[in-house]
Write a protein that binds this DNA or RNA. Structure first.
Ligand code: FES
Ligand code: FES
Lengths: 141, 141
DNA sequence: TTAATTGATACTATATTAATATCAATTAAA
DNA sequence: TTTAATTGATATTAATATAGTATCAATTAA
């Protein structure tokens, strides 16, 4: 069971690169080469993130992508939702015959509780936090 | 992001059917039709569960599958591991260039902590618990 | 004017998940 | 003893999701 797919993984790495140089434009090319991400793949991810207002861009020479917002407002949960769809355990485990009434189903609530746990754990992990962790790790010998 | 795939979902339903009639043999056919599971697909899942000693079987006429063990000893975590592989967030998010030393990487530990949370939450959900929840839900009008 | 860039989108490849099919071995029952 | 109902083992196909590549138009700083 793979929790983060490549696109989420790549997106996180790209955002970290942008957050580290916050306020400056970085080209897709430089982000790709420096972080081992396939160039065209990365471009699609960046464009998707623009659509979701996580980053901004400037076309043309000297253009690129830039992080404007506070990296602490971008969580892994958001990225999972963008690239892997909303966290959901199972559409509906027992439908018609066995369960009958979704509304009151204890089991369903149980399952949804876990969804919440997963989601809130990933919400705590923001790009800002990751960046600080990374800086901290770099210091140690 | 889909946490439970069809095979895990189907496996859970089949185990609930078997747990509800614990000690008796149920045929794959009856489990399939009563729970809306594709017959041949289910058979493969049942055989896989036999290999993992979750259930037993008897060949021939009047044969079938049976649950011998305590349903409380079968957790959703086990089923996820069997049918979707071990819970893992991402192989390694930042490899060589950025991180360099997996062993001490703060970030990696952060991520692994979440894996633990996910896993332990699903460990609490056993077939026994689900069965009781289901029975409880059935009582209410 | 041009080269470096992003925007948009189409395409291919690979892997995973889901489903079906086949035939041999077993066994209770007719 | 024959037969029908079953599981065991395994091969095959179909559908979907993930990953990666390619192309060309639009923009813009130099
Ligand atoms: S799990 Fe879907 S209605 Fe109970
Ligand atoms: S995340 Fe892999 S070494 Fe840090």
């Amino acid at each position: 069971m793979k929790v983060l797919t490549k696109n989420t993984d790549y997106a996180i790495r790209a955002l970290l690169a942008l957050a580290a140089k916050k306020g400056r434009y970085l080209s897709a090319k430089s982000i790709a080469t420096e972080n081992d991400i396939p160039y065209q793949f990365l471009r699609r991810l960046l464009q998707e993130m623009i659509r979701h207002d996580l980053i901004v861009s400037k076309e043309g020479v000297q253009g690129g992508f830039m992080m404007e917002k506070d990296p602490d407002t971008i969580s892994v949960t958001q990225l999972i939702e963008i690239f892997q769809g909303k966290v959901q355990v199972s559409e509906c485990m027992f439908r018609k015959q066995i369960c009958g009434n979704r509304a009151r189903c204890v089991l369903r609530h149980e399952i949804m509780r876990i969804e919440q746990v997963v989601q809130s754990e990933f919400e705590k992990v923001t790009i800002g936090k990751l960046l600080r962790d990374l800086a901290g790790a770099a210091l140690k010998p």
